[in-house]
Structures are given as C-alpha cells and as structure tokens.
Write a protein that binds this DNA or RNA. Structure first.
Lengths: 359, 359
DNA sequence: CTGAAAGCGCTTACAG
DNA sequence: CTGAAAGCGCTTACAG
C-alpha cells in the first residue's frame, strides 16, 4: 500500500484548522489571517500535499487544460513548420500556470465540430485555440453556442466576440512583390494555399493588391492545397504557359522548394531564369541551393501570446486583441533580376548534358 | 440558467432504478438483467445523459487521457515529419475510445522528468508514449517507480517491463548501403542523427555493419543534432576531405536535402558526382531535384498501433510487443553509379557560368 | 476571521 | 439480480 496520498483533511488536521480554510488559502481567497495562511502553507509543504486536480475539477467544473484541434491532412501538416513551433510556444505560455495542452488532429469538418462538442461535453478543456480560420467558419458559432472561451489565431472573416492574436503575414507577401518588382520583374506568379482559409486568401489578396499597386497584372495566381505535390504541379503549369512568369511567389516554403525542384528539373536556373520566394522561414530554406528568399514569422511567439491571451480570457472573461510584429522578408539567393529578353525554356536534355562537363 | 445538465440520478429516476444500477450498465458490469439494461440505456438516451468525466475521474482515479512528452528543439521538430504523422496515427487508435491526447513539448531532460512527475501527481494521464528513447534513459526507471503504464516506440537499450512497438528502420539503412554498393560505390559516408538516441545510434550501427559486411571501411561517419544546418556543415566537411565520399547516406530527409544543397552549391552534380540518400520518406523528398532516394516508414501506423497497445496495457495490465513492417528504401533520382575516376571538385564559378548557356 | 456541512456526480463494496 | 449508503477530495455558501 505504501503511504496513502495526503488529502486536504490531513493538512487541516496538521494545521489545526478546517478543510475550508485550507482550500481558501490554496485558492488565494481573502479573509485568512497572514499567520494562519503561513501555518497552513507550512503544514501542506511538510506533508507534501497538493490539491487533487480531479476533485477540483468536479467541484469547480474546470479542467485546467487548453485545447487545440487541428484539421489538416497529416501529410501536409508534416511539412508545415507552423504547428510544432506554435505548440512549443503555447507550452512556454503555459509554464507555471498548471495547465496542459490537449491536442487533436482531425481529418474533416464534421469530425472537427464533433470534437469540439465532445471536449465541452466532457469538460476536457477550459478554452481552445482557433487556428486555420476559414470563411464561414462554423466553429465560431458553435463555440459561442457552447460558451467555450477561444482565442483566434489571426483575424476571422467576420466579427466575433473572441479575442484575436494576429501576426500580419500579408506584409511579407507585399515585401516579396516589392522586392521582385525592384529587381525588374513584371511577370510574377503566385502559388497560393487553400482559398477556404482566411489567411490563405488574405495573403493572396495582398499579392494581388501589391501587384496592382505596382501597375502590374496579377493574372498568374493559382490555388493549391498547400502540399508539395500541388506546388510542383502548379509550377509546371505556370511554366508551360505561353508567357511564363519570371518570378514565382509561393505561399509556403515546402511548395517553394518543390517549385524550385521543378524549375531545375526543366533545365532552368534559379534565379537567372526564374526567381522564387517562399513563406515560413523554415530552417531548411536556408540550406537548399540556392538559399530561398522567404518570409519569416515567429510562430512560437504567436503560440506563447495566444496562450497568455486565452488564460487571461478564461480568468477574467475578457482579453484584448494583440498584434504581433509582422512577418518580414528574408532575402536569400533564390531571387535576382530577370533576364533582359524573354527566353524560351531550355532544352530538357540539360540534365543529360551537364554543364560541368562542358566547362 | 437553461436546463441543468442531467445527472445519473435523473436517469435512475426515469428508469425506476438506483444510481448504482445505472453506473453498472454504463461500465458494462455483469449482473444486470438484459431488459433492465435496455431500459436504462433508453432512459439515458432520452434524457441525453452521459457520465461526467470529472466525477468518474475522481472516483476511479482515471484521467481518460494518454500523454506524449516530446523533448526536442522546436526548430528540429518543425522539420521532422515523424511527430505530426505519429500523432495523427495515435488519434486514429484513440477514436471511439473516449480518450484524448495530452501533448507537452519540453526543452531539456530535467523539464522532461518533471513533466512526467507532474502528469502523474495530477493524475493527468493513464499512460504515456515513450519516443526518442535514449541510452540510460532516466524515464524508464522514473515511470516504473511512478507506476505509470507506458509503451516504448522502438526498442530501448536495456530490458524494460514496458511493451515495445517497433518498426525496423535499420533495415532501410542496410538497403541504402546495399543499393549504393550495388551501384559501384565504395566511399560511402553516413551523416547520423543524435548518438544519444537509441534509434539514432542503431541506424548508425547498421550502416557500419552493412559497410563492413560489404567489405568496405565505414570510416566516414559523423554525428549531428538532426538539424538541416548540421547536415549542411557535415556535408561540407566530408567533401573537404582528401578523399571525399562518392555517396552520402543521411539519417533524415531534411539533412539530405540540405546536403544536396551543399553539393550543388559546390558545383557538383547529384548523382553524377555524389549520390545522396535520405530517411523519412517526406513528401518534399519526392519533389526536390533530383528526387531523393530515401527510406519510407509508416509513422502513422506506428502511432495507431502504439495507441492500441497502450490502451490494452492500461485495460488489462499487459500487452504484447509488436513488430511493424520494416522501413523500406524508395529509390529516387538522387543515386546513381559513381564516376569511374576520382574527380576533384568543380570550380566554384559553375553557377556563374551556367551550363545552359554553354549549350 | 473561522467552522461545520452540503454539494460536485460519479463508483463500489455491502447487505439483501 | 437489486438498493441504500459511503466514499473519491475538493469548493463554497452559510452561519457564527
């Protein structure tokens, strides 16, 4: 058997007070004499008692946990550096708060909504992080109906009572366009993410705006599912066009790297023939050749601040919106001036007759 | 107020039985007449009652949750496709079991051990997944002491009472070596992961064994921290050697892709000058140029089976070890026969005098 | 500022 | 096969 776990009654007995008083002390409620408070703390420490979470959960209807439900294709999420960094950041924001993170990965919208319902029905979480907001996102109404506190990661498409923690990633897209225009590009394409996602379309819109603002036609914009495969396929399509782009802006680093692979496969050079920019600032982007010009954000800071905001919302029923430093362009070696004349694609046997032999 | 949530008492009243009997039915305990059982189920469904998890947790000392504590540098984990896929698999194994996943990302060993202690002290989880097993892994003794059920993802370095769900990844490394040897390579290098991790060293050992078995000297083996930066740095070092390798086997796809970047940066060709193989079978590996020869495993299946094993262990106090299909080599375009003669590195201005212009 | 008691909503021997 | 009661370990009005 060993020593049975001490309970609040043991502490009360040791300190010569009632259980209620011990509870008051451990919940920082006023109305306990400082010396009594100290005596109770000492008694608890001596006995090695900590309040039972299960018991507290039952009487306070609190779970001391936060939830993150991720609706993504596992294949896509595996290539996306956002979530691991975001989660690590959330963890930082939770440190010392005695709360944990409940994670769920779901394949589709129905499962997603069912998962939230269930988390609430079982009192599994005290609040949730809303990532990957979509247009007409059904989660907003559901969570409002369920009365579950939530913090939105990025702005939604409509007003909502939940606080927003935002990081302006569109800024990085605008910088990408400005950078390319500054280099002399005019035929710039954009390989977007999922258009159903608010951040996906917002980035795309900011590309269109930046192009229009520069007096250029944003007529080479394609949507994808964010996968490397889609990035590669759309790159082929763009390059097959009668008037192919001289630069391509991608909505993610994996897609940009896949696109770079396509460019190389077709015997074209980066950036001499095609300039390429990514989005995410992944570690890998710095180590491909040529190193990727990309947009870096700080998803860990995003997670940390989102956690703090959610904890505040849960604690005092309201929390202000928060704006984080915008995503910034990091210029690598994958962007450069376009060639002065339009070039036709180089012969596909480039790779069979490698340049190095020709030197 | 709305309608207060129904309790077990409401169901008992509606069914005309005692609360205890309702509890028996919902816990599938024997000794309830089938018709009574049905009547109680109906009453509960009509009322919309589900047992309160908090109340069950308090009386049964069960949390209905499983834990995963990941000790990894967020930057490295972001590039590693293992965890997202593994977690998605765990989710599949949990479906319909009414259990959730608690995730924690920690930076170091002390925090890691403290996290397990805390999960147990607060009865947060009924069992945990042990990934990234290390030599002299202190978690094994700690969890045994705490009495927390655990399932080991891969074999540990010593015997342990916890069940193992294994996937032979070393097989893929052996296949990589055999593939390269078959192509005619003899100077094959290995860029390993962290040597403190059992799977890291086991893969490295199997590389050494495979080389020795082929009558070759495994004298080009370097350790890394699994980061793309380390993969790139070690690649430079290997290629700077007096007798550089003609093929490099990497312990991860991100390192292999970074290594490929280095090779290209130095004006060498893949695979004409250097063959490269990776490990993980990431989506991106198929879309770099040339496409990466890599080793594919099924981390989602690993997660699913690990979840099932852990649930079984928790339910009946024991579960058998499980062996999953081994990781298999997937040949891409990044491996080919070596050049017949030793070549010196090509001039660094390769990229300034591109081959395509020379055509 | 303090104490005794009810309540959170289940589970589980125990007696019948 | 069934019922009444104690217990899980807290929190929280309520009375003093």
């Amino acid at each position: 058997m060993g020593d049975p776990k001490p309970t609040i009654a043991d502490v009360a007995r040791a300190a010569g007070v009632s259980k209620g008083l011990v509870s008051f002390v451990f919940n920082d409620r006023p109305g306990v004499a400082p010396q009594t408070r100290a005596r109770i703390r000492e008694a608890a420490a001596a006995i090695g008692w900590r309040p039972s979470l299960s018991a507290r959960s039952l009487s306070t209807r609190t779970s001391f946990a936060l939830g993150l439900v991720v609706r993504r294709d596992p294949r896509v999420i595996a290539a996306d550096p956002f979530f691991p960094a975001f989660i690590a950041g959330v963890e930082m924001g939770l440190t010392g708060e005695g709360r944990i993170l409940v994670l769920s990965v779901v394949p589709d919208a129905d499962t997603e909504l069912r998962t939230y319902r269930r988390l609430v029905a079982d009192s599994r979480v005290d609040g949730v992080f809303l990532t990957d907001l979509r247009y007409d996102d059904r989660r907003l109404a559901l969570l409002a109906e369920l009365g579950l506190p939530a913090v939105m990661i990025g702005h939604p498409d409509r007003s909502s009572a939940f606080p927003v923690v935002n990081l302006d990633d569109a800024h990085g897209v605008r910088q990408s366009v400005a950078h390319l225009v500054g280099l002399g590009h005019s035929r710039i394409a954009y390989v977007a993410g999922e258009p159903q996602m608010v951040h996906g379309r917002r980035r795309r819109d900011s590309f269109v705006d930046a192009m229009t603002g520069a007096g250029l036609h944003p007529d080479r914009v394609v949507d994808t599912d964010f996968s490397a495969a889609a990035g590669a396929a759309e790159t082929h399509r763009l390059l097959d066009a009668a008037s192919p782009p001289t630069a391509i802006v991608y909505a993610s680093d994996p897609m940009a790297i896949a696109g770079m692979g396509v460019v190389h496969q077709r015997g074209l050079r980066v950036p001499a023939d095609i300039s390429i920019t990514g989005f995410d600032g992944t570690d890998l982007a710095r180590h491909v050749y040529p190193s990727l010009t990309t947009v870096v954000a700080d998803p860990a800071a995003w997670g940390r601040e989102a956690a703090r905001t959610l904890l505040q919302l849960i604690a005092v029923a309201e929390a202000p919106n928060l704006e984080l430093p915008a995503a910034e362009l990091l210029v690598g070696a994958s962007t450069g001036p376009p060639s002065h004349a339009d070039r036709t694609p180089y012969p596909a046997h480039y790779k069979e007759t490698p340049c190095v032999d020709a030197l």
